[in-house]
Design a binder for these strands. Structure first.
Lengths: 353, 353
DNA sequence: AATCGGTGTGGGAGCGTTCCCACAATGCGC
DNA sequence: GCGCATTGTGGGAACGCTCCCACACCGATT
């Protein structure tokens, strides 16, 4: 079943059918109706390959995520980002192709050749977040349309969406300062990740607003993981911080563990603030105050920007998403009623079989 | 840059270049060398659309995951599955397209039309897991190549990969029985999920091997979530179980919470066994014994089977992956040295900036 | 009555491959 | 020296669309 077949069955020409499909308005109502009828009856759908070949548009966007070796998929950030990107594609009639630099089998080089130079994609969303990703430079050189998730320090003319990491961190630390804490520790992510450093900058800027400055003794750069948070907190304990700002919830939860083992109470002895607002923050004990970010939004917006880029190739778009604080008990606040506690009613089905 | 250009530059015909690219052996060594040189120099890569159009192969596989409304992405299962599927594609020179039935925007119907009938894909991996998924019936009717992640109770002639849910559950419960427990509770997943019911069957079969049978009082069907586990455990507490087999680690961790709140010690008062062996199981307190499954393997194998299906369209493949137990402390065992405890050495960088 | 812009329609060319058939060149047995 | 596989090569047709140009037809303008 192809265009020609539909045309024959509807008694019109190939061109007319094509116009109907592409919503060209220069088609009589009568012709349009007859074509639509045939299309409906035979469940016709134009062949994607032929369409791409003729129109030079594949309606496929790529999403490049970091290599599998990293613990990247134990953090819900990427899954949510993927979900948002798929939604962004669905709402615009596009498709999402996953690109991942799996170790060994396919080098990023091979993948680049195959996918980018093979014209498989209309544009690409790069969610790699490491400062010196060679892919970015290459995409720029090839003039390939792409959008970054997470800003890039150089390359002002490159489009990106980002969470307002700096401002979120600043607010969180200001909040801790508001509780009267002065010795506020920082447990951060890898120093080669822009988002991680932006959060550090926010921490430093909140302190400086209060007339203080970061105490190197109270600052640790680690990984965005539970284990790293645990170890970092253990190393910080002897320095007697009054509060801890963790650059991710996973880190904060690892810190919880170290504090619990040391018999230190949260928030009474040490206040804790996280970043991400994962589900796990809500159900932690005590519920973890955290900076809210929405990776789904990041994904969805990145796709939208990529699509806009195809229409207006010049004109870089920079978009920064807001980061409200989710205030719970771990910072020392009384939690608002129902803000996150577990429900008390069973509401689950109790049954044998 | 296209085939013809390469041909001209190499002083051969279009056909010869095509043969070189497709590893056809009927090419002289001399011609092959000259063609390869040109390809290398200009970084030529064949146009995907043209290729698909002529060869009727897109080298794209689809991965259909359940709709976004579900909490599906807070469980690491799907992310890992996706990762495995990407690896499977990369190692075979294919690409992975994500398909998700996002609510509203695009109905599964539209997506089906666009992607399946538009010949966008060579085959599709269905990871939906609900018994009555209408997509499965439709794919069968259309004779479209597809592989299920998770077995399907009907449709014996449909290929699938699955975790050995029944056997994993059986072994876990046998293990608990081996510790001398008799009143073993079960907290399961949704009753319309095959995997969830397979785990229940394993539970029941372990009991029956021991001459017992499930006590309806001790069986709860819930969701694969932390909250559901928490609520289910609360409802079970009055029934005084000696042990609990949770059909997922998230459930088990929710149960931990309910037990802790009630002042019940694990494993001293109640032993707990989970399913999945998430990272979180290893770092839980006490470390959670769990049935190990590998969603990455599931994804990778599903892709391999899909590819095999393209070569041999008849001949359904059924593959069931083994599920070793990860024994830790929550079931009452002494944990093996280093089997999962958190490291004691800092090993993180301590620094200001 | 001749001219004009606007609207709907049809058909040819082209997108960049693969596949098939034709054919030249080579080596071999007789 | 001839036929005859075997090997390497070239070119046409096809894949199923989109895009562009040509043209028929209409009512309105001169």
């Amino acid at each position: 079943m192809n265009l020609e077949d539909v045309a024959r069955l509807a008694g019109v020409s190939r061109s007319t059918v094509s116009r109907v499909i592409n919503n060209d308005r220069r088609v009589s109502e009568r012709a349009r109706r007859r074509v639509m009828e045939v299309i409906q009856r035979y469940e016709y759908h134009p062949n994607a390959a032929a369409r791409s070949l003729a129109s030079r548009r594949t309606h496929i966007l790529g999403l490049l995520v970091p290599d599998a070796l990293s613990h990247i998929f134990s953090d819900p950030f990427f899954p949510k980002l993927v979900q948002g990107a798929i939604e962004g594609c669905n709402e615009s009639g596009n498709n999402l192709m996953m690109l991942m630099d799996t170790p060994g089998a396919t080098s990023v080089n091979q993948m680049y050749r195959r996918v980018v130079r093979g014209r498989h994609l209309d544009a690409i969303v790069v969610a790699s977040s490491v400062v010196n990703d060679p892919v970015v430079a290459r995409l720029r050189k090839d003039g390939y349309p792409f959008v970054l998730v997470g800003r890039h320090p150089r390359f002002e003319d490159t489009s990106f969406v980002d969470t307002d990491n700096r401002e979120g961190a600043r607010q969180a630390v200001s909040h801790l300062l508001g509780h009267g804490h002065r010795r506020i520790a920082f447990i951060g992510g890898p120093e080669n990740m822009i988002a991680a450093m932006d959060r550090y900058d926010g921490y430093a800027s909140a302190l400086s607003e209060a007339g203080a400055q970061p105490d190197p003794e109270l600052v640790v750069f680690a990984d965005f993981t539970y284990e790293a948070g645990y170890l970092a907190m253990r190393s910080l304990l002897p320095r007697r911080p009054e509060a801890v700002f963790a650059a991710s919830d996973l880190i904060a939860l690892g810190a919880y563990r170290a504090l619990r083992e040391a018999g230190v109470r949260v928030p009474d002895d040490v206040a804790v603030f996280g970043f991400d607002d994962l589900d796990a923050a809500r159900v932690a004990e005590p519920p973890l105050s955290s900076v809210t970010q929405h990776p789904e939004e990041l994904g969805r917006e990145a796709v939208r920007i990529a699509l806009r880029l195809l229409e207006h190739p010049d004109g870089a778009v920079h978009e920064v998403l807001p980061v409200p604080l989710a205030i719970r008990r771990s910072c020392g606040c009384e939690e608002a009623e129902g803000a996150g506690a577990l429900p008390r009613q069973p509401g689950v089905q109790l049954a044998g079989r």
